[in-house]
Write a protein that binds this DNA or RNA. Structure first.
Lengths: 228, 228
DNA sequence: GCAAAAGTGTTTGGCATACACCCATGA
DNA sequence: TCATGGGTGTATGCCAAACACTTTTGC
């Protein structure tokens, strides 16, 4: 990966970068890490990622770097391959092709440590994740668009919601990611008619107001559906 | 890329493989090339592809190999990135990660040479493209599914139809790729209501029977649509 | 009893589906 | 005139969208 002056680059090398999304307090968040790679990137930030070992797949590498650099247990994540970025100048230090992954994790599934921010890894609202290293703004933008698109025709949002949730939570998360205002009655009718969720009988939220019925996804697999 | 006994593999190398589809005589065709790489692959067949140079993008490499190995002018193709295949054992000769592309070209746009079959490159019906080298059956299957899916919600079929076509040709191609039987009246109503095609005024097919109106796509860009 | 969120039904219009016959042409 | 493919309309049912009030709870 090092570009020395002595020997020319023979081959491009391969990296895996991962966009880890979660959702908390009404906002879509992305996990960022500190990037400090002089001379080009000094004390800046980017997505967790790194090179692929000869003995691991791109997805293995994505998971390894998420654990090591972002401090999130990969076993808690749902991940899909996003896109492979191969612009020749995307890494000024040498020729690196990056396989990018889109990963989702419910906030409630994270440990206290994983939820928290440190000097080397932290959660940032997607809207304020600017000036990232490499081509990571492009990767993040790609991932955000893909997520927006996927939630409208798959059950992938199940991977961002807690195991049990209210229909209002579902609707708010869906609407926040799309920046759309939804009709409560129509949203509920659609979701229920699709048959993708079932009420957890007898379980309701607590709190100051009228309790809400809890639901869960019937299947844990991400499926294509007709249109939410 | 060579795996010698002398030095261990340092890095994976990157290749680009391309699934080039065309459509002729009622059948979806894929371009195959001869593969002869002893000791593992002797006189067998596969998708056109090869390594990425340090100075080119994955898409550049895809186009270059399509020209060199498949004998098709890349400028005639429409291409989309498909998926990156990184299974450790996908190439028995060493560690190769492959960025796969899905490319489309109308049969009518091909030259006589490009339409024809040689000992090193030929068109095969997708259904009979079996026993390909490497993981190319998996790649082809992935590409076929993606194509089937994309034609239902984008205008990508414009890249497989000739510039001017009849609605019957459109319908037949659409139905053949999906293996679906379509209702002629409903198909026409939908396509016309979507506003993606316009009649070429005054142009009709010749032939033995009643002439058919020719249409063209209004836009040459591939767009997402509501549902064909 | 009040503040806050949960939960519920109806009307309307548009679209998908199913379905069968006449038209234009060349041989 | 016949064989072949081109071209058209209607009825039905479902679904999306618009829209406002009542219920339940904790304080």
């Amino acid at each position: 990966m090092k570009e020395t002056n002595k020997e020319p680059i023979r081959f491009a090398v391969i990296a895996a970068d991962t966009v880890v999304f979660t959702y908390n307090d009404g906002k879509l968040l992305v996990r960022l890490t500190k990037v400090d790679r002089p001379p080009f990137f000094v004390d800046t930030k980017g997505l967790p990622g790194g090179l692929i070992n000869p003995s691991e797949t791109a997805e293995d590498a994505s998971r390894r770097h998420v654990e090591d650099k972002a401090g999130i247990a990969a076993s808690k994540l749902y991940a899909e391959q996003l896109y492979t970025f191969s612009r020749v100048d995307r890494d000024p230090r040498g020729r690196v092709v990056a396989v990018a992954y889109l990963a989702l994790v419910p906030w409630e599934k994270l440990s206290k440590e994983e939820q928290s921010n440190s000097a080397t890894a932290w959660w940032s609202p997607v809207v304020s994740a600017k000036k990232l290293a490499y081509d990571h703004n492009e990767v993040l933008s790609f991932a955000t668009k893909r997520l927006r698109s996927r939630i409208t025709y798959t059950t992938v949002l199940a991977k961002l919601l807690p195991r049990e949730f209210t229909l209002t939570e579902f609707e708010n998360m869906y609407g926040a990611i799309l920046s759309a205002n939804l009709d409560k009655r129509n949203f509920r009718k659609k979701v229920l008619k699709l048959g993708i969720v079932s009420p957890v009988t007898g379980k309701f939220t607590g709190g100051r107001f009228r309790p809400a019925q809890l639901y869960k996804f019937i299947s844990t697999d991400v499926k294509e559906i007709e249109v939410i």
